[in-house]
Amino acid sequence: MAGCIKGRQSAQKKLYDKYSRLLLGVCNRYTRDIEEAEDVLQEGFVKIFMNMKEFKGEGSLLAWMRRIMINTAITHYHRMRKHWYHDDLQEISETRLEDHSWDESDFSSEELFGVIHQMPDGYRVVFSLYAVEGYKHREIADILGIDENTSKSQYSRARRWLQQRLVTLKQEKQQRSEGKA
């Protein structure tokens, strides 16, 4: 930690080796694919190393780094939104889905990351912030510069979208395993 503040490369490498895998998992929730997530990771680590002395030791180092990654990912999302614009208009059927529940064993992490990557961009960010990071809608609205109600409605649409996607994914998996048997 002290070595990192002084910019010692061996210390920085140690920090990177220890946390990069976990932090890439964080970035990967906000991007369209793993390549983009690595770009965000890079940018985030540069910020971490350059601002190491700003870290006051309040709370854990990991939480601080996690926050930097999320902020970087959101900046990245804002920057890319221009090119992605059309996706935000995507229509979602308004049909009410019955509330499904899931087992931890239903899907692998890779499958869930895959589903997140496929999500429309606006949904992805709101969903990850709320469901995984545990931010409040009020905070999400502040971070993204949107209305609190927009955040809520985006979230419920994202949830519906996911619900639909997970149901089909599970069906596909079952069919595949039956096909094998």
């Binding site: 990069s20 895998r21 976990l22 890439l24 998992g25 990967n28 929730r29 793993i34 997530a37 690595e38 990771l41 509330d99 499904h100 529940s101 899931w102 087992d103 931890e104 239903d106 899907f107 692998s108 992490s109 869930l112 990351f113 997140i116 969903f127 709320y130 469901a131 995984v132 545990g134 949830r159 996911l162 619900q163 997970l166």
Partner: peptide, 20 residues
């Protein structure tokens, strides 16, 4: 199952690790 969609994602992804 026992998990709703938020629980599913937060259990599976909060500490998910990927090698860069």
């Amino acid at each position: 199952g026992k998990l709703n969609i938020e629980q599913l994602f937060s259990t599976k992804l909060t500490d998910a690790e990927i090698a860069a």
